[in-house]
Design a protein around this nucleic acid. Structure first.
Lengths: 155, 155
DNA sequence: GACCATAATGATACTCCGTCTCGGAGATTA
DNA sequence: TAATCTCCGAGACGGAGTATCATTATGGTC
């Protein structure tokens, strides 16, 4: 199994996506008791080859030789083990991307679909306080930020 | 057409939900060129009678005499005209509720399903700045806060 | 009140997205 | 090698929402 050549598209994160990434994820799954199987590696490779948030169906058509159920199962496993995180677009379409792990939020470009992690933004504390004011004990939140990335904002 | 008696459940917003609310919404729709029809009023009444965020299907079964498509259409119209806002639960289930209008966020109780508006929380500016740092021009965002309301947090 | 253009309705077919089911294939352990 | 188990693929299934389309109700006009 070899990772398909990543399509470099200009503005994306400088992130190693190669056989090493796949091996790393497979190793982590093995530690958790999951088997190292061919279809699973194919799914992980395909995930690692994506340069921006993708849908489950996109992954399915990128992997015609892997069953649809298997793709969905693999994706779900990756989400559950925090290898992949879910991204919600403005129209509520659900997409996925390799996770940089830990809780974080995404900046999503409405034009080109690129995503970036939102850095230097500590909403956590603020939300917890505001929730407390309303008598709520906050346990979690979901935040997505939409806009235009540097390149797409120019025009 | 008369609004069904609201079920008071303890902790909910003190908000007038009666024939007046329905008339008000219908009037606003008329101003926009939409007709005042019986099924539409039924949908609006049912929406106004809800004490907490509800699903489209719940509304359908609360209105067995109104076609499913009509309920969905009515709901969509209400969302488009800002009379009703959409609420996303942690499991991505989409619910609706009467809008208090203007941009705001929701505090959602994971136990009883109650919702409250998040007051005194100005994430807007913060997000815009953080986005700018990443070279993004923010245009919008989606935020939901989950937790337990005062009553449900006690146990 | 009658007429008419058209917005709205409701039954139902359909799409989309994801999960479930189940028989079979490969691993893993005894 | 037998027993067990995870995983697989094909396809059935289910929930949620939309599209289609013939029919009906609405609101303006005369």
């Amino acid at each position: 199994m070899v990772v398909t050549t990543p399509k470099h598209s200009g503005h994306e994160h400088p992130r190693p996506r190669s056989a090493a990434v796949v091996d790393d994820i497979v190793a982590q799954l093995c530690d958790l008791g999951y088997r190292d199987t061919e279809p699973r590696r194919l799914v992980i490779s395909a995930v690692a080859a994506q340069s921006r948030p993708f849908t489950a169906e996109e992954l399915c058509s990128a992997l015609p030789c892997v069953g649809r159920a298997t793709v969905y199962r693999g994706l779900r496993l990756l989400v559950e083990t925090d290898q992949v995180c879910r991204v919600l677009l403005e129209d509520r379409e659900l997409r996925y991307q390799l996770s940089h792990q830990g809780h974080h939020h995404h900046l999503l470009c409405a034009v080109c679909g690129a995503s970036a992690d939102l850095e230097g933004c500590d909403v956590e504390e603020m939300l917890r306080d505001a929730a407390a004011t309303a008598g709520f004990k906050m346990s979690g939140h979901w935040l997505e930020v939409y806009g235009r990335c540097g390149e797409c904002a120019e025009d």
